[in-house]
Design a binder for these strands. Structure first.
Length: 580
DNA sequence: TTGTGATCCC
């Protein structure tokens, strides 16, 4: 039992200060009650705060304490709302906030608004964010930079980038954190151009920058395939001394890998004095998506030697590399190693890689078996199988995969297009017609194929048959000239039906976006230099053949990043060895 | 006691 002199409030408070476990706290609480001090404001707040907020606390005990507070002060509301906002049930934070606003005499303060907004972001409570915004204004906190930064994040996290930006614009004194926050919101939402634009505004306004700024921007460069801008960022990071920051280094490795420049990724990797698990993962995943599974293994072994434990992402990188390189045996081995040796449970993504591995290698029954034996009835697994059926022209298994997607109610236009292509490959015209019909009847939208190319510091976007580019005339002239030249070397365009995934239901003849981008690249970049393009879908077979011919006829290295992997075209050959 | 960052199957 605690000694009697603890009955003084100040003594109890100082004991509470040093409390580090819920068990001890409960003993103190009992003592507080025995001495009739449970309503002492400072003591009850301290007890509540520890339970709600501390890692050693207990949110359910905090709830219990809170129930016994007669007129909770702002501090008390603060603790309970904060506790739930950062815990496993943020919805509770909103419920407490509601009852505070509607029943309590205590007023919410800047801290409470921050916690509530955090909860709104996590549980995607878009309407609530707006409502809270109203109350923030009414309580006069619309000039509080931290509250507003939370508001920006909360709006952006709910997909309301426009609202987030308006809040940002209306802020009177913006600090570096809030600029960083706006940039990372854009980056995470996929608004990469906006992130870059904001950065140039940041420079104009001489705000300065730090590692956080760079991470958001470099991630955007990675997603856009904007190598030149990424190199700029690398330079800045070097000049300002941010290269030793894990996050910056890892983002750079990822950026170089995603921009097709694996050597540069490796340079950053090697120069990082301290590497964490993500540093290794970024590099292993980089090798993986480039189809260099053997190098991924080598790095994995080095990682183990360095005493770093792999995690599930490490294995995704490895398995991804194996499937692109066709290393079936290794894939199976590492898939098992994952759980047997490293106690990691394979997730649906790992199954996805393995289905892909079997599927590409033509072992379609194995792939099917694997899906059926796994506990995942996941659309992505069936879609992966369907893609493999396309490669190997397997109608029967393809139909099983498509049926599963329909059964799950998750089939999309892309799936029918894939199946239509399989029918087309085996000259089943009725099958093709049935698939077209399904898409039409159900009014499904096809995903528009897009290709991006970076020239200088600008990223240009193309769609199929694009005529919106200011240099369109020049591009089409060049394309016709290219096609004539390639024809002499034996290239002929494949039939329209084989040209998924930009397969167009309306027009029979079309110029795929990658052809336009490559033609543009040939016009705008110096002779002999490398052309890098990026697609949102898989490259189709015709364009793949076309690009091989170009690389030879025009003596250009062409690097294509498609939705899932890289193709390095050189002298008429592709690094994927036509295995994709 | 309140705000910002990287790697992830098709």
């Amino acid at each position: 039992m605690l000694k009697c002199h603890y009955s003084k409030p100040s003594a109890i408070l100082s004991i509470l200060q040093g409390c580090n476990s819920i068990k001890r706290l409960k003993r103190i609480h009992a003592y507080v009650i025995v001495n009739g001090l449970q309503d002492h404001p400072k003591i009850s707040n301290k007890l509540l705060n520890f339970c709600a907020v501390s890692v050693a606390g207990s949110i359910s005990y905090a709830q219990l304490l809170f129930q016994h507070i007669e007129n909770p002060s702002t501090e008390a509301w603060n603790s309970i709302i904060r506790g739930f906002a950062q815990g496993p049930s943020p919805l509770q934070a909103l419920l407490y906030y509601n009852s505070m606003v509607s029943t309590s005499a205590s007023q919410p303060d800047n801290h409470i608004f921050s916690f509530v907004l955090k909860a709104c972001k996590i549980i995607k409570a878009e309407k609530k964010s707006m409502e809270v915004h109203g109350l923030i204004i009414r309580h006069g906190y619309e000039r509080d930079v931290i509250v507003c930064t939370n508001l920006v994040r909360s709006y952006a996290g709910n997909g309301l980038l426009g609202s987030a930006r308006r809040v940002f614009n209306d802020m009177t004194d913006r600090d570096l954190v809030c600029w960083n926050c706006m940039i990372s919101c854009y980056s995470q939402a996929g608004f990469h151009q906006d992130a870059l634009k904001l950065f140039s505004q940041m420079r104009d306004e001489k705000v300065g920058l730090d590692g956080f700024t760079l991470v958001g921007l470099v991630a955007s460069c990675a997603h856009m395939g904007a190598l030149n801008i990424g190199i700029e960022m690398h330079k800045i990071a070097w000049e300002k001394g941010f290269l030793q920051d894990y996050y910056v280094g890892n983002a750079l490795i990822d950026m170089y890998a995603k921009c097709g420049s694996l050597d540069d990724a490796l340079n950053v990797f090697n120069e990082m004095k301290r590497k964490d698990i993500s540093t290794w993962n970024s590099m292993i995943v980089g090798f993986g998506v480039h189809g260099r599974g053997d190098e991924a293994i080598a790095l994995f072994k080095q990682m183990l030697m360095a005493g770093v434990q792999p995690n599930s992402i490490t294995f995704l990188g490895l398995l991804c590399g194996f499937s692109h390189q066709g290393l079936v045996e290794e894939g199976i081995q590492y898939f098992h190693l994952m759980s047997s040796e490293f106690k990691l449970k394979p997730g649906v993504k790992h199954y996805g890689c393995l289905v892909d591995l079997y599927g590409r290698a033509g072992k379609l029954e194995k792939a099917l078996e694997l899906i059926e034996s796994s506990s995942y009835d996941d659309p992505v697994l069936w879609r992966t199988l369907l893609s493999s059926c396309k490669i190997h022209r397997n109608v029967a298994t393809g139909e099983i995969a498509l049926k599963s997607l329909v059964r799950l109610g998750l089939s999309n236009a892309g799936d029918y297009i894939l199946m239509a292509t399989i029918y087309a490959e085996v000259k089943d015209i009725d099958g093709v017609a049935r698939m077209r019909e399904k898409i039409k009847i159900q009014g499904m939208k096809t995903t528009m194929g897009l290709t991006w190319i970076e020239v200088g510091d600008k990223v240009h976007k193309f769609v199929v048959n694009d005529i919106s580019h200011p240099d369109s005339c020049e591009i089409y002239d060049k394309l016709k000239q290219i096609i004539n030249r390639l024809a002499l070397l034996g290239y002929s365009e494949e039939a329209a039906i084989g040209r998924d995934p930009e397969f167009d239901l309306e027009t029979s003849s079309s110029y795929h976006s990658e052809k336009l981008a490559i033609a543009f690249g040939l016009v705008k970049t110096p002779e002999g230099s490398c052309i890098r393009i990026m697609k949102n879908l898989r490259i189709c077979r015709d364009c793949h053949t076309f690009t091989k011919f170009i690389s030879k006829a025009f003596n250009r290295e062409i690097i294509v990043r498609d939705r899932v992997r890289f193709h390095h075209f050189n002298n008429g050959i592709c690094s994927c060895c036509d295995y994709w």
